[in-house]
Write a protein that binds this DNA or RNA. Structure first.
Lengths: 110, 110
DNA sequence: TGGGGTACCCACCTCGGGGTGAGTAGCATC
DNA sequence: GATGCTACTCACCCCGAGGTGGGTACCCCA
C-alpha cells in the first residue's frame, strides 16, 4: 500500500490530474457507465444518456478514446455506422469509478 | 450489485454530481489524501499541499466541511489555531478515491 | 425532386473553477 | 512603534468546460 504522502505529491502531476478529470467529468462518467456492459452506437449513446448535447457526447468520446479507455470502430457504410466500446483500461476505470459514484448517491439520498 | 443502467440515470442527479465533483476536484483530492492518516492544521495543509493558493485551500476545506467529509475544529487562541480532520464519511470517500487516483497514476506512467 | 437519417464539424456565448493580490484582528516580539 | 504570525475575507481576472444552433456528406426512399 502506497503511503498517502506519496500519492499527494504525485497527484500534482498534470497528466494524472487530467485523466482523473476526464473519467470523473460530467459526461465522461455517464459514457463509461453506459458502455460498461455492452458496445453501443453513437445514436444509442445519445438516446441512452439523457440531456447530453451532440457536441459534448462527441467531445467526451474523443477524449476517452485519446486516453485509451474507449474504442471507436467506424464502418464506412451509408448511413454511417460507428460502434463504441470499452478497452481493458476502460473497464478498469469504470470498475474503480462505479463504487465512488454509488457511494456519493447513497450519501446524497441518506 | 446495482445495474449500470440504474447508476446512469441517477448520476444525472445534480447533488450526486456535485459531491463527486467536490471529492475529485483538483485540490479536493489532495486535501482528502493529506488528511487520510492524520489531523492537520491549516498552515500544515498549506505547506504539505505544494502549489495550493490560500483561497483555494480555504474554499476546498469549506466545501468538504459542508459535505460532511471534513471536520473543522477552531481554538479561540491568539494566534488562531484550527485543526482539520476527516469524518467517517470522509474516510469512506478517500478509501474509494485513492484506488482511482493510484490507477490513473499507473496509467500515465506506464 | 426533396425530405430524412447518421455521425459528425464549426462558431459563438455563458458561467464558474481556479488564480493573484491586498486587507484584517489580535497578540508577541524586537 | 513597527513588524510578524495565523487563518482567514474580499475584489478582480482568466480560461476552459459546457451549452446552443447551424452546416455537411452521403445515400435512400417517397
Amino acid at each position: 500500500m502506497t503511503a498517502a504522502r506519496d500519492l499527494q505529491l504525485d497527484t500534482a502531476c498534470p497528466d494524472t490530474r487530467a485523466l482523473v478529470e476526464h473519467v470523473t467529468s460530467k459526461w465522461g462518467v455517464l459514457v463509461l457507465l453506459a458502455l460498461r456492459d455492452r458496445t453501443m452506437r453513437w445514436s444509442e449513446l445519445k438516446r441512452e444518456i439523457a440531456g447530453v448535447s451532440e457536441k459534448m457526447l462527441i467531445q467526451s468520446l474523443q477524449t476517452l478514446e485519446a486516453d485509451g479507455l474507449v474504442l471507436r470502430t467506424a464502418r464506412p457504410v451509408v448511413p454511417p455506422h460507428v460502434d463504441y466500446s470499452l478497452t481493458d483500461a476502460g473497464h478498469e476505470a469504470v470498475d474503480l469509478l462505479a463504487p465512488l459514484v454509488f457511494w456519493a448517491q447513497q450519501q446524497v439520498q441518506g
